[in-house]
Amino acid sequence: MLNGAFRPDEQVCSLRSYRRQRDTLVGYRASHIQHMQKALRQMNLLLDNVVTDITGKTGMTIIRAILNGQRNPVELARYRDKHCKKSEEEIAKSLKGHYRDEHVFALRQAVELYDTYDEKIRACDKALEQKLNTFDSKDDKDSQKPSTPDKPSKKRKSRCAPDFDVRSELNRVSGVDLTDIDGIDENTALKIVSEIGLDMSRWPSAKHFASWLGLCPGTKISGGKVLNRKTKRLPGAAATAFRLAAYSLTRSKSALGAYYRRMRSKLGAPKAITATAHKLARLVYSMLKHGSQYVDEGQEYFEQRYRERVLKTLKQKAKDMGFTLTPVETAVG
């Protein structure tokens, strides 16, 4: 009489394994970035003060030049990429250090290990792309649906995203563009699809889906009395992806960003993240199950609807108490 635990079909399970292996390698590569940073600091080379990411084009070019024997700060600063915000003079000031052999040795090993894991991640990217190519296209199943060209994404590509057009592939296999939802980039969309699959019929409704993710209030009730409404702690990868997407909306000018900030001021950050992740999960469920598209109505639209709801509540309370609300005209000028 118990329902079986959720398990995607074999095709999705295979995709999930490739994606999880890739995430593991990304974590290992990040450790060696920290080792590179430590070796640079030990040599008093403050490269991270002048570049946003030491593994970017400017940072790695300078690091490889150091490993090749270059020690002159002015010469090293000339490897600055034209898009770098700092000038060559500023970069040269941060590269005046002492190049002890043991620290250079540690830096060299960290770079070699970084390159090794970077190569393995690229191999995972190819495997992911090949696996996605085996999925059936949604357009093939619904020939009556007019095909529309993919619109360019307004979101920046994440540094941790796979090295192929993930967005187009996911659009093809799902029939919808999950990256239209604010907070969900192509890497997050790939994580979600690889964890939950494309068949939403496994959950009768969006409420069941949110409950399975552990993103809904708890129902600890005894004798008809609610004892606890805390959200269940379920360490699922899909729920974590939704929570991270919700947290990324902190400064978003979208309706979802306004919703998160409203909930944060009311409930605090942890509960606001859960509430926003719950809303994101319902949107993803609706898009994958019904093929609907998401359109952001904007921050101003959300704030206007919030004001209307508050005003309606105030009017009803005043009416119940025998009063009438009268707007106050403010003088202009």
Results as ranks from 00 to 15, higher is better:
residue 290 H to V: 00
residue 23 D to A: 15
residue 182 D to F: 07
residue 291 G to H: 07
residue 111 V to W: 00
residue 1 M to Q: 12
residue 49 N to D: 12
residue 62 I to V: 06
residue 217 P to G: 03
residue 279 K to S: 04
residue 170 L to E: 07
residue 55 T to V: 03
residue 261 R to Q: 13
residue 240 T to K: 15
residue 239 A to K: 11
residue 142 D to G: 05
residue 229 R to Y: 07
residue 246 A to T: 05
residue 157 K to L: 11
residue 169 E to K: 02
residue 172 R to D: 06
residue 108 R to N: 11
residue 207 K to V: 08
residue 68 N to R: 09
residue 19 R to T: 11
residue 261 R to S: 07
residue 313 T to V: 00
residue 25 L to D: 10
residue 236 G to I: 06
residue 183 G to R: 04
residue 107 L to Q: 01
residue 111 V to K: 01
residue 70 Q to D: 08
residue 230 K to Y: 04
residue 48 D to W: 04
residue 193 V to E: 00
residue 142 D to A: 12
residue 297 E to L: 10
residue 187 N to K: 11
residue 52 T to F: 07
residue 117 Y to H: 15
residue 257 G to K: 00
residue 39 A to K: 13
residue 186 E to I: 02
residue 74 V to M: 03
residue 186 E to G: 02
residue 212 W to A: 13
residue 250 T to I: 07
residue 5 A to M: 14
residue 60 M to G: 04
residue 178 L to I: 04
residue 307 R to Q: 13
residue 62 I to Y: 00
residue 4 G to D: 14
residue 65 A to V: 01
residue 176 V to N: 05
residue 116 T to I: 07
residue 95 L to E: 01
residue 185 D to I: 02
residue 113 L to D: 12
residue 320 D to N: 08
residue 136 D to P: 08
residue 9 D to K: 08
residue 292 S to V: 09
residue 108 R to S: 14
residue 208 H to S: 12
residue 268 G to N: 05
residue 226 V to Q: 14
residue 90 E to H: 11
residue 164 F to A: 08
residue 1 M to I: 07
residue 7 R to E: 13
residue 191 K to G: 09
residue 330 T to D: 00
residue 8 P to G: 10
residue 220 K to Y: 14
residue 52 T to A: 12
residue 269 A to M: 09
residue 66 I to P: 01
residue 270 P to A: 03
residue 246 A to E: 03
residue 61 T to M: 05
residue 270 P to Y: 03
residue 75 E to D: 10
residue 243 R to M: 09
residue 43 M to F: 07
residue 154 K to M: 02
residue 109 Q to H: 14
residue 110 A to C: 12
residue 37 Q to L: 09
residue 6 F to V: 11
residue 215 L to T: 08
residue 306 Y to D: 10
residue 64 R to E: 14
residue 131 K to H: 15
